[in-house]
Amino acid sequence: MAYDRSAVIKSRVSAPPERVWFALTDAGALTAWYWPASMNPRAFSEPVVGGRFGVDAGEMGFAGEYRELDPPRRLVQSWRWAGDDRDSRVTIELTPSGDGTELLIVHDELDEETAEMYRAGWESCLTRLPAYLAASTPRAESR
């Protein structure tokens, strides 16, 4: 099986890159927006190179390792869906855009079928990100 496919997702949110970065790397933030609250997700995140992260919602979950961190611009991480036997890679680029942030997510090292499923998954979870960013306060996100 060839693992040469990518899922590429572009999105824009009305929040500065620093707030989006926090939403992508803080365990509490991931719990708040990544999956619906009805799934009762749990998350962990240690945003340092070599640190681990993951979200678990019972029968669904993923985990990985931070490979590259350039706050608040670029994030590269390994990614493994629960039950999979190999890692893939996620690269997220954050670019300031007016009063918001452009996100470019490239999830690669995938086969064709998995790339399509992950593209749909990223698009689904990103629909919850703007509401999280609108409801959260910058003070609560300072580190």
Results as ranks from 00 to 15, higher is better:
132 Y>R: 06
51 G>C: 13
92 I>P: 05
101 T>H: 04
60 M>G: 07
2 A>M: 11
49 V>Q: 12
74 R>M: 10
62 F>A: 12
11 S>K: 09
8 V>F: 02
32 A>T: 14
3 Y>E: 14
63 A>P: 04
106 V>D: 04
12 R>P: 01
65 E>Q: 12
50 G>V: 05
135 A>N: 11
108 D>Q: 00
41 P>E: 09
143 R>P: 04
12 R>Y: 13
38 S>R: 09
68 E>Y: 08
47 P>R: 09
126 L>W: 06
24 L>S: 01
25 T>Q: 07
53 F>Q: 10
108 D>N: 08
119 R>N: 02
87 D>L: 06
23 A>T: 08
12 R>D: 11
85 D>C: 12
119 R>D: 08
139 R>K: 07
108 D>L: 00
84 D>F: 10
27 A>N: 11
67 R>F: 02
106 V>F: 03
65 E>H: 03
114 T>W: 10
95 T>P: 05
65 E>G: 09
132 Y>G: 09
38 S>A: 15
85 D>M: 15
42 R>M: 04
14 S>L: 14
3 Y>A: 08
140 A>C: 01
120 A>C: 03
39 M>F: 12
22 F>Y: 15
66 Y>G: 05
136 S>K: 00
22 F>T: 14
100 G>Q: 06
73 R>C: 11
7 A>T: 03
10 K>Q: 14
73 R>Y: 04
21 W>G: 12
32 A>K: 14
56 D>C: 06
44 F>I: 13
27 A>Y: 14
129 L>R: 12
93 E>S: 09
131 A>M: 10
102 E>S: 11
121 G>T: 02
71 P>M: 11
51 G>P: 08
4 D>W: 03
35 W>H: 13
137 T>Y: 06
61 G>Y: 06
88 S>R: 08
61 G>N: 03
64 G>K: 06
31 T>G: 10
38 S>M: 10
76 V>N: 00
1 M>I: 08
127 T>Q: 11
7 A>E: 01
120 A>T: 06
93 E>T: 14
6 S>Q: 13
143 R>F: 11
89 R>Y: 04
143 R>V: 14
14 S>P: 02
90 V>D: 01
48 V>G: 08
21 W>R: 05
28 G>R: 15
110 L>V: 12
64 G>D: 02
35 W>G: 08
59 E>A: 12
77 Q>A: 13
83 G>D: 11
138 P>Y: 05
121 G>W: 13
106 V>R: 02
83 G>W: 12
26 D>P: 03
118 Y>A: 10
60 M>E: 13
37 A>R: 03
47 P>S: 01
22 F>V: 15
40 N>D: 12
95 T>Q: 14
33 W>V: 04
111 D>N: 14
82 A>N: 13
29 A>D: 10
98 G>P: 08
89 R>N: 06
59 E>P: 00
117 M>V: 10
30 L>H: 04
57 A>R: 11
63 A>H: 15
72 P>A: 04
40 N>L: 08
79 W>L: 12
39 M>D: 13
105 I>W: 01
55 V>N: 05
107 H>I: 01
24 L>C: 07
89 R>I: 14
100 G>C: 05
88 S>F: 10
82 A>D: 10
20 V>R: 11
29 A>S: 07
91 T>P: 00
27 A>C: 14
21 W>Y: 15
7 A>D: 03
101 T>D: 02
